[in-house]
Design a protein around this nucleic acid. Sequence first.
DNA 1: GATGAATGAGGATTCATTCAT
DNA 2: GATGAATGAATCCTCATTCAT
Lengths: 197, 197, 197, 197
Amino acid sequence: MSPKVTQQYKIEIREKIIKAAIDAFSKYGFDRTRMDDVANTADLSKGTIYLHFKSKEDLFYAICENNLAEAKQQISTMFAKKEDLVSDIERFYDFFRKKKTANERIFFETIAESARNAELRKTLYKQRMNIFETAVGWVNLQIERGFFRKNIDANAIAVGLVSLYDGLTVNKLLGVSEDYSKKAWVETIRAIIIGIS
Amino acid sequence: MSPKVTQQYKIEIREKIIKAAIDAFSKYGFDRTRMDDVANTADLSKGTIYLHFKSKEDLFYAICENNLAEAKQQISTMFAKKEDLVSDIERFYDFFRKKKTANERIFFETIAESARNAELRKTLYKQRMNIFETAVGWVNLQIERGFFRKNIDANAIAVGLVSLYDGLTVNKLLGVSEDYSKKAWVETIRAIIIGIS
Amino acid sequence: MSPKVTQQYKIEIREKIIKAAIDAFSKYGFDRTRMDDVANTADLSKGTIYLHFKSKEDLFYAICENNLAEAKQQISTMFAKKEDLVSDIERFYDFFRKKKTANERIFFETIAESARNAELRKTLYKQRMNIFETAVGWVNLQIERGFFRKNIDANAIAVGLVSLYDGLTVNKLLGVSEDYSKKAWVETIRAIIIGIS
Amino acid sequence: MSPKVTQQYKIEIREKIIKAAIDAFSKYGFDRTRMDDVANTADLSKGTIYLHFKSKEDLFYAICENNLAEAKQQISTMFAKKEDLVSDIERFYDFFRKKKTANERIFFETIAESARNAELRKTLYKQRMNIFETAVGWVNLQIERGFFRKNIDANAIAVGLVSLYDGLTVNKLLGVSEDYSKKAWVETIRAIIIGIS
DNA sequence: GATGAATGAGGATTCATTCAT
DNA sequence: GATGAATGAATCCTCATTCAT
């Protein structure tokens, strides 16, 4: 077998495990998920997981990174250029709605965990800055296009938008109705846009 | 001994334990905190804790409720009437800054846990609605006073404000600089206010 | 207060505790009965129990001795002289039936415990010999009266009768119907009597 | 590995654990035996025991059932057909003598426990009826062969014999001398046989 | 490479006993 | 004497990790 094939195979197994771990961690939380749960979900043996991840914690980090990568991807998609600002807001919300709840649960667990884990916090911080940059880029784009005023604090507004998004995720997880969240998102963004146009 | 004294004493011990548990849970997270940690922090024996709380989970619930009660208190304070809207924004932020980080860590852990625990989710949901109401009241007050337009969606804006607040908490926990958060809060709120005035 | 009154009082409390302990031990077994159970049943505080008994084990011994004393009393009653042998058999059975099940449960627990506890075993052994003697006395009485043959082994028959009695207690505890036991007792004794007349 | 081997292996381990548990429970009693004791006796780790038995209680049930199965086997052997009745009595006694004391201790603990445990009581009751049936069969056989009279109550006599046997076990456990028990058994049975011939 | 049986450290919970009031 | 709050030793059970097959 060529190394390429082997390499490919390894990556496949790795992703299979990560997928299973996300599933399991979302359902039970990190500490209450047993490696057996992950193994069963992945349809693999516990031993095999240890061939790919040094420890449960190692697996958790891999998930965090995976989650972050995905989040970044999502945010990028979210802030993809588009001319019509109003349809943007709607798109934002629809995007928000479609996101799997699974990852959101892990998101909060990750946040909580980061409070105790400097390494993880560093990774998350870096990623967050990344997200901010993307958002700032979007705001600046709107400024260039004349949709937003030139003298606004692009950074601050960008952080505000991302934070609003995060805050609505809290509501979503707590079971606050879609209606509430959608209106909050649309109306608040609308107000902001008016405020900075 | 009069029952009153005994009752008072019991409550004191209870609060001592809750305080210790918040400390410990914040530091290590619920699952990784040993009852020994809580006991040592409270300067009590493990056995005594079990005289006041049926189980570790029971203690966690008590903390959640305690946290919620405190959060409600804080939110209420935050939305206390004040004439000058601009100073309000600043006050909001200062208030935000002063909040102990300990509780915030638990806040996220609670959110994550609620994803798996219907009972907890119900409690959190109820509390959240309560917070929303308070915020709505504040928004309506501003409308009455003529600071906000009459035709805005008070509900949506209130939810948006609370969410923005929650989202900034995420940043705070991840170590995002105060400067970033303060500016984001002030500028975003300013934009919103302009947008709805 | 005169020492006599105090003494009397002490004994009363002691018996109250023993009664409660028998109740509790019968229900849950020695190991699974908490001193709290005994205290509650006796309507006393745990502390008070320790004023009368050095330890839980000490209390158990007291119960065993109490039980033995009672058993001896019962057996004595059972073997009280009576002319009519046939009515004796019936009386035996009725006696058997009336005995509280509570004590029987403790009886077996005591037996099991004695297997591991030399001190207890010694006490039980002594008591057993005592019971045998009483039974032998009864058998000898029947011989004297001409109901039983002179050349039988009074000892052996006495032990046999007591054992039959014990064995039927096993059935009783397991829920074997009264009918079964009564017939077994009456018919087996009848056979024995015929065999040794 | 073929399933057959695995299955066989599993059964072996299971029996090893049961054997160790009987040993340990006999020595210390159910409640005072630590799972560590069982594990050490079985020369296995605690964890391994939990791979085969869900809980300590589960293990206890397994022992009870094992004990019952063995008891049934023994009783069956005991009542195996034999022509010479007198030699039968001796054989009964010799059989009685050979039985390991370990199981007898557990027998009483099981009885005591059954007083509080309906499930266990049901199992024991069923088994007891089984034993009775075997005994009844033996008695009927003697009737057929002309050793016993036709008009006796086979059921009652069978229950009486089994009860006598059980009762003698009490004596054995309490340390009553072999001599006493042997004579009691032989003479009482002899009397019964005479009484029903 | 894959497996899953075996391990044993770790932690929640219980409860006999003590002792200040 | 009586109480019951406080203690902490004791023990069941779980589960991450290892390693022989």
